[in-house]
Simulated assay, not measured.
Amino acid sequence: MDTKQLENKLIGFFQRCQDRGYPLENSRLREVETDYVLEVKANWIDKMNSYSKALDILIGFLWETTDAETRKKIFAISILDSEEHSQILTEITQDK
């Protein structure tokens, strides 16, 4: 699966974030060997008490909107700060 195919498979995830009141300002896929890191930035994340709460929300939406094949291609989710520096990188496990 290439980057464009993966982006298409994540459309439902991005829409779910928007629909549930957790819109992403910016997102991109960064290729790491044969997998990808999903990098995200959003104002609502900066306002939360902890990044782990934001990751719980994002990972929940990812599981609700994608199939196992898509999730296998996403090695991790990285939260970016306002200057787009990675603040946390959480590996996605295939078990939930």
Rank of each mutant, 00 (worst) to 15 (best):
K72R: 14
I77C: 01
E7W: 07
Y36F: 14
V40H: 05
F13D: 01
I88D: 00
V32E: 15
E64Y: 12
N49P: 11
K41L: 11
D19V: 13
M48V: 08
K72V: 09
T70K: 01
R20Y: 07
I11F: 13
A68W: 06
E84W: 13
T66C: 01
N43M: 15
A42G: 05
F13L: 11
A42L: 09
A68F: 11
G60R: 04
F13I: 11
L89G: 08
S78Y: 05
T70W: 01
K53L: 12
K4F: 09
L80P: 05
E84H: 11
G60T: 07
R20N: 13
L80I: 05
T93V: 15
E91C: 13
Q5F: 11
K72D: 08
L62M: 03
E39K: 10
T70D: 10
E64P: 02
W63I: 14
R20G: 09
T70G: 04
K72E: 10
R71Q: 03
R20K: 15
M48T: 02
N49V: 14
Y22P: 00
E31S: 12
D56Q: 14
E83H: 12
F13C: 01
L62Y: 02
F13H: 01
D2I: 05
F75C: 10
E83N: 11
T34A: 14
T3L: 12
I11L: 12
I79A: 00
S82K: 13
W63E: 15
Q5T: 12
R16G: 00
V32G: 05
Y36I: 08
D95L: 14
Q18G: 09
I79D: 02
L58Y: 00
G12L: 13
S52W: 04
Q87V: 07
E33T: 14
V40G: 05
E83V: 12
T65H: 04
I59G: 06
A42C: 06
K53E: 14
Q94P: 05
N8Y: 06
L62P: 02
I92L: 10
L38H: 04
A68S: 11
F75V: 09
H85A: 10
D35Y: 13
I57Y: 03
H85C: 09
K72P: 00
I79H: 01
L10S: 00
T66G: 02
D56P: 08
K53C: 07
E31I: 11
V37Y: 06
W63A: 14
R20Q: 13
E91M: 11
E7G: 05
K4Q: 13
W44Y: 07
K9P: 04
Q5W: 04
V37H: 10
C17Q: 02
L80C: 07
I74C: 07
V37R: 09
S52E: 06
I79Y: 02
E31Y: 14
K72W: 06
I79M: 01
D56R: 13
I74D: 01
D19H: 08
I77Y: 04
N49E: 14
F61P: 00
F14A: 08
C17K: 01
T93Y: 12
I88L: 09
D95R: 12
L24E: 08
L80H: 01
A54V: 04
E69P: 05
T34G: 12
I11P: 05
G60Q: 07
V40K: 08
